[in-house]
Design a protein around this nucleic acid. Sequence first.
DNA 1: CGTAGGTTTGACTGATCTCAAGTTTGGTGG
DNA 2: CCACCAAACTTGAGATCAGTCAAACCTACG
Lengths: 233, 233
Amino acid sequence: MTRKLERLGTLNEQDRSALRDLPLTARRTAAGQHLLREGEDSTTCYVLLSGYACRYKTTSAGARQIVSFHMAGDIVDLQHLLLSRADHSIQAMTELTFAATPAAELKKLVQSHPAIAEALWRDTLIDGSVYREWVLNVGRRDAKQRVAHMLCEFAARREKAGLGSPASFELPMTQDDIADATGLTNVHVNRMLALLAAEGLIARDKRHVEIEDWERMCEAADFDPAYLHALAA
Amino acid sequence: MTRKLERLGTLNEQDRSALRDLPLTARRTAAGQHLLREGEDSTTCYVLLSGYACRYKTTSAGARQIVSFHMAGDIVDLQHLLLSRADHSIQAMTELTFAATPAAELKKLVQSHPAIAEALWRDTLIDGSVYREWVLNVGRRDAKQRVAHMLCEFAARREKAGLGSPASFELPMTQDDIADATGLTNVHVNRMLALLAAEGLIARDKRHVEIEDWERMCEAADFDPAYLHALAA
DNA sequence: CGTAGGTTTGACTGATCTCAAGTTTGGTGG
DNA sequence: CCACCAAACTTGAGATCAGTCAAACCTACG
């Protein structure tokens, strides 16, 4: 299952076998379920095997901000290797299958296998880079660009994760979710999606999206995948 | 100099001596200088010794978004330990002194001293947590809250870094900088600062800020320092 | 088929931006 | 030490992007 982990790392030898010996528990949840809630103490790390999830935080007034989307191969909750208190929630957007492993086990593994530690550390650094781009997206781009950028990132990561062509895919999230990811309202997201379609940048049918012209779409989205650092997960 | 590094880590033994043996170069730059520019390949890591800096990214249209502020004790550019291509710029906001060390040296150190690796890794995880909070701040809080939150975070981190009381301090950044950090315009930041002062939450004299009532200010800012994870640097 | 969640559309509102003109501040050179 | 200048800050008035509220329409699912 989790040799997806290996793909992400650059340098791995026969700590592959150690990886295989990690005690993993395969699990499944329904859409809408939480893997983690803000404020909880977590002692588990997860690797997504199928389906989509998101991380989010909320203001005290109850507004929700999604801070990242996650898909098959993503390692979630890595921060609980070293930080116990969750500063955010993780929720399944679709039915989800994932592998769970105790943080303590993973920590042992990491301590004895520097190459694995490096790969995971690199993953957290890339996470940071993606967060920076999100701050930029939400802080300095207009509504159309924000939505377009989110679509481009999703398409690009989906492809990198081996989940299919970036030109044609099914969105796992609602327009409410897109709104919470882009700092907009669901109403306005709807209008921006309609606008992108009207401009011929995308074609939509329910949750299905086709990106008609990747070049023009990237331009409209101000999307440059460099910040993904050739994200392998 | 850099025993600030040690403070940040939880578990350190006599890799302290290894830390001291790191080849460091003390340097100084004027306000406005760049330590790093987006797109460059960096092979150096920095620890700030005095002064303030910020990371930022820009849209293709030229809009700037500051994604973090940094102060004495902060380790900057840690990501270039494992990622070569810079996805953002780092600029001095004030005159700055810092220690520079080749990423390769630091990498060697980290490989032979797991406790140091863990401390630095934890630092990058906390960075991630702060970025998540910024996404929330810029995405889901109104202008007054954003500015107030930025002030609270700055005050709290400043105190944790041993730079003085959170109730009274000098801002190192212009209102333009605050605007670029909060996703607002300088004009509106100015109005929000005036509003916070009018409400008796802060008192201002030029760049000097006093937080009159920390409790009320935190409430107005929707600020809860949990996401800083007792940030030691 | 009834219902709930999701999407779409319209009309109106308002927070924040833009543009523009002052004012203050801090640094610099005479 | 003063005059000047550029940068930063402040204030006002009008424009606009995105939000709010509300209703209608889908559509998947029980």
